[in-house]
Amino acid sequence: MRKPLQVNRIQGAVLVMLAGLSVTGVAQAKEVIVKIGHVAPLSGPQAHYGKDNEAGARLAIEDLNAMKIQLDGGTAKFELVPEDDAADPKTGAVVAQKLCDQKVNGVVGHLNSGTTIPASKIYYDCGIPQITPSATNPKVTKQGFDSVFRVIAHDGVLGVALAKYATSDLKAKKFVVIDDRTGYGQPLADIFAKQVQASGGQVLERQYTNDKATDFAAILTSVKAKNPDAIFYGGMDAQAGPMLRQMKQLGIKAKLIGGDGICTAELMKLGGDNVGSNVYCAEGGMALSKMPGGPAFEKRYKDKFKSDIQVYAPFVYDATMTMGMAMKEAKSADPKKYLPKLKTISYKGVIGPITFDESGDVKNAPVTVNSYNAKGKTPVTTIQ
């Protein structure tokens, strides 16, 4: 039996209305995928840094997604694209090209200066903004790439501050300077040595190793004969820990001084009970306990990951959030649209206020000098 024409018309109208609601619902629920690349060493002797950095990025991704940011006509869903460069410049370049090919919307990283510098050219050429949370070689932001930013004090600031502190506060006059010949360690050692001499100190000897070494007997035997007040090491904790053990074995009483590469919780595991008030190190930024959002971030980090922060996790968190806020201001994840906002961004981060100068460096970055005691790394002074 055929239904009356009027009934068919009503049913048709209802179906059209429902279809319209369905389309509207889809439009309202449109999801815009935003891919943020993160690169650090996730394997090898520096993996503890890389995993720490990635954890900071993941916390930021969680927070950005919770904000339900509207970008490009829909709700942004931020996704982290983690990559391992093994702290190797060649691998870093390969990974950078991979992220370009995947058309990520931005990159947070790399961790090391030696990987960041070659990768930054690749990102610049493919139009992807990059914020490094930890690469401190001044060259990173001096290459003429307007897509490169940094949220931590560079070695020109850190090395000078540390040399001044060593000569004035520690009263050290005679130094031996050792570096690992990397894009991080060598420039930092050069800056430190130059400032030591400008501050009236004496560099008795320069020695060199590499970022894979663990045996420093030959170097330290030569150092012992010089009887320095302090040894400066430009490199990472994977070498500084064994170096401290071997210094004690040889009866070397000099203090060990270094940059943020040795300024980690891991140093106490690597160096054992040889790590204490004989070690001084500097970090770009305020001590975690003094950061505006530091204590709360530390609690959240420990609750989630069941481990201590090494060094850079709060900087990675802020770098990721800063990139997300630039996208929010631009209402777009298109690099061409949000890059101008990144250049003028003003963001109140865990580490403090973040704004960039014309080179892409964070403005007014402080430096914190730390030492160690039974409880771990302890801030001694902050230099603004």
Rank of each mutant, 00 (worst) to 15 (best):
V39N: 01
V39K: 01
V39T: 07
V39L: 07
A40T: 13
A40P: 08
A40W: 10
P41E: 12
P41D: 12
P41Y: 10
P41N: 10
L42F: 08
L42H: 05
L42S: 06
L42V: 11
L42W: 07
S43I: 00
S43R: 00
S43F: 02
S43H: 04
G44T: 06
P45C: 10
P45F: 03
Q46H: 13
Q46S: 14
Q46L: 15
A47W: 08
A47R: 14
A47N: 14
A47P: 12
H48F: 15
Y49G: 02
Y49C: 02
Y49K: 00
Y49F: 15
Y49T: 09
G50F: 10
G50P: 08
K51G: 08
K51Q: 15
K51S: 12
K51W: 15
D52R: 11
D52Y: 14
N53S: 14
N53K: 07
E54R: 11
A55W: 15
A55D: 05
A55P: 00
A55V: 01
G56L: 08
A57M: 15
A57E: 06
A57R: 05
R58T: 13
R58I: 14
L59A: 03
L59E: 00
L59T: 03
A60V: 12
A60C: 09
A60L: 12
I61M: 09
I61T: 10
I61Q: 06
I61E: 05
I61G: 01
E62L: 11
E62H: 12
E62F: 14
E62N: 14
E62Q: 12
D63R: 06
D63V: 13
D63I: 13
D63S: 02
L64Y: 12
L64G: 03
L64F: 15
L64V: 14
N65Q: 07
N65F: 10
N65R: 12
N65V: 15
M67W: 02
M67G: 04
M67V: 11
K68P: 06
K68D: 13
K68Q: 13
K68R: 15
I69Y: 09
Q70S: 15
L71T: 08
L71C: 09
L71G: 06
L71N: 10
D72A: 03
D72G: 01
D72F: 05
D72K: 08
G73F: 02
G73T: 08
G74R: 07
G74Q: 10
A76G: 08
A76S: 06
A76C: 03
A76Q: 03
K77N: 09
K77A: 09
K77Y: 04
F78Q: 02
F78I: 08
F78G: 00
F78S: 00
E79C: 09
E79T: 11
L80V: 10
L80A: 03
V81Q: 04
V81S: 00
V81G: 00
V81F: 10
P82H: 00
P82R: 02
P82Q: 01
P82D: 02
P82T: 05
E83N: 00
D84A: 01
D84K: 02
D84M: 01
D84F: 03
D85P: 03
D85F: 04
D85T: 00
A86G: 04
A86S: 11
A86M: 07
A87N: 06
A87G: 05
A87D: 08
A87Y: 12
D88F: 06
D88Q: 02
D88L: 01
P89L: 01
P89F: 04
P89H: 07
P89S: 05
K90N: 09
K90A: 08
T91R: 08
T91Y: 02
T91N: 10
G92P: 06
G92A: 01
